[in-house]
């Protein structure tokens, strides 16, 4: 019995060995340092750190804004993916490239740009201000920044599934007397449901951890517009390693759960599609 199955190709030992070594040194060992630190600081200390009012408020804000932004991203992202896959219009390639902008634009750049747009004297802010809508330095601003970050995740996860969804199933539905709306609700939506959910989960997970694009527009008022990642930075600046680690541990557990959820959604939908 050998570990790998027979192959005439060379280089399994070195490439596999290097992969595992590099993965351990860069990712696994450093990540386990967080859990080690968390466990050595003691349970009561950990509990105390994550239950302080500021931390609870930050979690509520981070998870709440990410949830809202994830839902908005799903709606907008689905519309954009639909239009990109189903319709043709001039400049489509440029529009498609633009969707990836948040992946390529450094988060700090996005952060200061959004802040200048939505500040009371900014291009958009000056119109909202007279209506009594404040965006910059409120949770609304944080949500808008997270929509910016989350949108491409939804578009890119829905697009391929929508493109693969053959016209024949829709034709079949129409032949059997379904209206366009019925076809959409009963045929198209269930088929792309897992992709929408995956996109949502990715946007949500990214939103909870997002830092650069949010801290400028959030204004960072203690207990009001402080996001969880900012609290980690604040704690670190005060050399409160244990506190920072406790906040980080909860965030990591949350994002790993989302990761597992995504894997599970994909496994289930693969099984259902029979691929």
């Amino acid at each position: 019995m050998t570990f790998k199955r027979q192959s005439i190709l060379p280089g399994f030992g070195p490439s596999f060995g290097y992969t595992v070594l590099y993965l351990s040194l860069i990712v696994l060992i450093p990540l386990s340092a967080v859990f080690l630190k968390s466990s050595t600081s003691g349970w009561s200390h950990f509990w105390q750190a994550i239950r302080s009012p500021n931390v609870v408020a930050a979690y509520r804000l981070s998870f709440g804004a990410s949830l809202a932004a994830g839902l908005i991203s799903v709606a907008l992202g689905f519309l954009i993916a639909w239009v990109l896959v189903r319709y043709s219009f001039p400049g489509k390639r440029v529009v498609s490239a633009l969707v990836d902008l948040p992946f390529a634009l450094p988060t700090a750049v996005a952060g200061i740009a959004l802040t200048s747009l939505y500040a009371p004297n900014g291009w958009i802010g000056q119109f909202l201000e007279p209506m009594g809508i404040k965006v910059a330095f409120t949770s609304l601003g944080i949500t808008i920044a997270l929509v910016f970050i989350g949108l491409p995740f939804v578009v890119r996860s829905v697009e391929p599934v929508l493109a693969d969804l053959g016209k024949d199933v829709e034709e079949a539905a129409a032949t059997l007397g379904a209206t366009r709306y019925q076809t959409f609700a009963r045929v198209i939506l269930p088929a792309i449901g897992p992709a929408l959910l995956t996109g949502f989960a990715m946007a949500f997970a990214r939103g909870v951890g997002e830092y650069g694009s949010v801290i400028f527009i959030s204004g960072n008022m203690p207990g009001k517009t402080e996001i969880a990642p900012l609290l980690i930075v604040t704690q670190l600046e005060q050399y409160a390693y244990a506190g920072a680690t406790a906040i980080a541990t909860v965030m990591m557990l949350a994002s790993f759960s989302v990761l597992l959820l995504i894997n599970w959604i994909q496994a289930v939908s693969r099984q259902r599609m029979g691929a």
Partner: peptide
């Protein structure tokens, strides 16, 4: 192994910095 390689994507950037400070 593939899942572990993707792991850094699901870690907040701030936490990614924190782990090296802890080390």
């Amino acid at each position: 192994l593939i899942t572990l390689i993707d792991l850094p994507f699901s870690v907040s950037p701030v936490v990614s910095g924190l782990i090296f400070v802890l080390l």
